[in-house]
Nucleic acid binder design. Structure first.
Lengths: 149, 149
DNA sequence: TATTTTTATATGTATATACATGTAAATGAG
DNA sequence: CTCATTTACATGTATATACATATAAAAATA
C-alpha cells in the first residue's frame, strides 16, 4: 500500500519545502543585483559579518551566521583566494585564525552595498513595512522552533 | 573609504540572508526526523511530487518544484540510483522521460510520511495556526516579488 | 524536403551546505 | 609534569543548487 492522495497533498504543504522554494527565488533575485560585483549574496553577507567583527575567528563567524564551521572554513577560503579577506594567525593561540577584510575587500563591499540595497528595498517595498516586520518576526519564531527540539 | 557601521548593520538585516539562515535550521530539523529513512527533506519532496504527477517529466517536475531543470536531472538521478524511481522513455517523443515511483519508492514514502508529519506538526504547533497561515501567505508574497522584476 | 529553430534532457563547472572525521594545539586531571 | 580531554580549524565526502553550454530530437519554416 502506498500513500493516499490526501497525504500526498498534505506533504506538498511542507513548510520546509515552501521555505526552500522561496529561498531559491529570493537568492536568485538578490544575486541578480549583485552580479556586477561577482559576489553571491552569501559572500556579501560573509564579508559584512567579517567587517563588523573586525578580528573574528572562523568559529565566531559560524556562530554569528548560524552556519556549520566547515561551511565557513571553505567559504572564507574562497574569499581569501579572491583577495577580499586575509587570515591572520593569533599570536597566543596557534589554532586560531582571525579573518579580516583586505583593502580590496573593503572596496568591493563599498561597491556592492548599493546594489544589495536595491534588492532589499525592492523586496521591502513590495512587502510593505508592516508585512516585512511580521515576516522577520515569524522568521525568528521559526528559528526558535527548529532549535527547541 | 569603506562602509560605515550603520550600513554594515543595515546589511545584516538582509531579508535573503535571514531567510537562508532560517532555511538551514529548518532543513536540519526536518532532516533529523527523516533520518531513519535515509531521505533528505528535499528528496522526500521530490518523491511526493513524482507520486502526485504519476507520469511527469523532468521539465514538469522542475516547473512544479520551482527548481532549475539541471538540479532536477541530478536529483532524480540520485533517486533512481537508490531504486526509488524509474525513468520511462516516452513512446512518441524520444527526448522525453517520465519519472515514476518504484514499489521500493512507494514503500519508502509510506515509511517517511509519518516522520515528516512529526516535523511538520512540531513546527505548526509551535507557530500556532494563525501564524502558520500568515507565514505561508507571506512566503507566497515574497515569491511574487522575486518574480516581478 | 532541407534547414533553422525550439525543446527536453544532460554535462561541465562552481558555490553552498553539513556530517563525520582528522590534526594540531591548548587545557585540565592526576 | 604527563596523559586525557577539549577546542579550533581542515579534509573527505555527499547532497543541493544554478548557470552556461552541449546534444539530440521535434517542430517550424523556407
Amino acid at each position: 500500500m502506498s500513500l493516499d492522495h490526501n497525504e500526498l497533498i498534505q506533504a506538498t504543504l511542507c513548510i520546509n519545502a515552501n521555505f526552500r522554494a522561496v529561498c531559491r527565488q529570493l537568492t536568485q533575485f538578490y544575486n541578480g543585483f549583485l552580479e556586477p560585483t561577482g559576489l553571491q549574496n552569501t559572500q556579501f553577507t560573509m564579508l559584512v559579518t567579517i567587517a563588523l567583527m573586525k578580528w573574528g575567528t572562523i568559529m565566531q563567524l559560524a556562530e554569528n551566521l548560524q552556519m556549520d564551521q566547515t561551511t565557513l572554513t571553505r567559504g572564507v577560503e574562497r574569499l581569501r583566494q579572491q583577495g577580499w579577506v586575509e587570515s591572520v594567525p593569533d599570536k597566543e593561540d596557534r589554532r586560531v585564525k582571525h579573518i579580516v577584510l583586505t583593502e580590496a575587500g573593503e572596496k568591493l563591499l563599498k561597491e556592492a552595498f548599493p546594489l544589495w540595497q536595491q534588492a532589499q528595498l525592492a523586496v521591502q517595498d513590495a512587502l510593505g513595512a508592516e508585512d516585512a516586520e511580521i515576516l522577520l518576526r515569524l522568521l525568528d519564531k521559526v528559528t526558535q522552533v527548529a532549535h527547541e527540539d
